[in-house]
Design a protein around this nucleic acid. Structure first.
Lengths: 155, 155
DNA sequence: CTTTCTCTGACTAATTCTGACTATAATTAT
DNA sequence: ATAATTATAGTCAGAATTAGTCAGAGAAAG
């Protein structure tokens, strides 16, 4: 089930690099030309195979001296609850629901009281006031999911 | 903060100087010729890496005997810097500027590494993607100001 | 045969680098 | 003094250099 297509080969190549260093910094165009594919295929490989669910964090920079950095992170054990919460959020989240989630996180010792306060400030109704309730709830959902995804691993 | 582009190298060089003295006074043309770049590149480096969001204050003088002075400020010594930051944010904040501020907050022990990671996740470009750059920057500004306000009332 | 996965390329976005032009301060000449 | 010259630094727009997105074509799997 592996190795039949070029994406699998690139995946394997990158994972071998990461196995050595826990973290690699590549040039998209270099990798692309090395495997003789278009640059955007590197994005495809990363998007489909180096997700946070699989334990990878990806950062990049454009312009001169640009790069794509892939880092392997250690996923924590308790993450079933994170998946549950993320599924429950869907594509909208009210402030009330957000507070409930934050409360759950504190109770499960996934975040501290101080961290909870900061997250609360972020998803607060005034902070996200944007004149459109649906959009506001969507942004709040995005923020909450980003935070939950971050809690999947220890930095 | 890598070394593939000359701006990063100049940034590193200047920061090493400042690490020794907290404050440094340079000649733009000297630095430029030392790294063999046009003088205006020094302005670029300063404008992108030595802003108040990064925790630096820059002064300069033109004409004979001119100079550029870069000083690292400490937030603990200058609580009003929080106000300066909030003012600088105004009604828009890019991801880059946000990262700079968060980094400065960590360096000044106003937030922990973990808290910084959570805030970073909140103001991330993907998180706040809403199809409208202006709105995205406005929401990011709101979040950042909410965090800074929270820090002010704390401690 | 239908659905899902892979691959491609045109278009977009972000960042760095460069140089021509502008602004200001100190020094020198009149 | 005043004007001219010299010595700095600042601004800005555009070129150069990366990476990202997205929709559709093609291939593989069910």
């Amino acid at each position: 089930m592996q190795g039949k297509n070029i994406s699998d080969i690139i995946e394997k190549y990158l994972k071998e690099m990461i196995a050595e260093d826990e973290r690699v910094e590549i040039s998209r165009s270099d990798i692309a030309s090395h495997f003789d594919v278009v640059p955007s295929q590197i994005n495809y490989v990363i998007k489909t195979r180096f997700t946070i669910q699989n334990g990878y964090v990806v950062e990049s920079k454009r312009g001169g001296g640009g790069y794509i950095r892939i880092e392997k992170v250690k996923l924590l054990d308790n993450i079933d609850i994170l998946d549950t919460l993320i599924n429950a959020i869907g594509d909208g989240l009210t402030q009330r629901e957000g507070k409930a989630i934050i409360n759950t996180l504190v109770l499960n010792n996934l975040i501290t009281d101080n961290e909870a306060d900061l997250v609360l400030a972020s998803i607060n109704k005034q902070t996200l006031a944007v004149g459109n309730k649906l959009l506001e709830n969507e942004i709040r959902a995005n923020i909450m999911v980003a935070i939950l995804d971050h809690l999947r691993y220890k930095s």
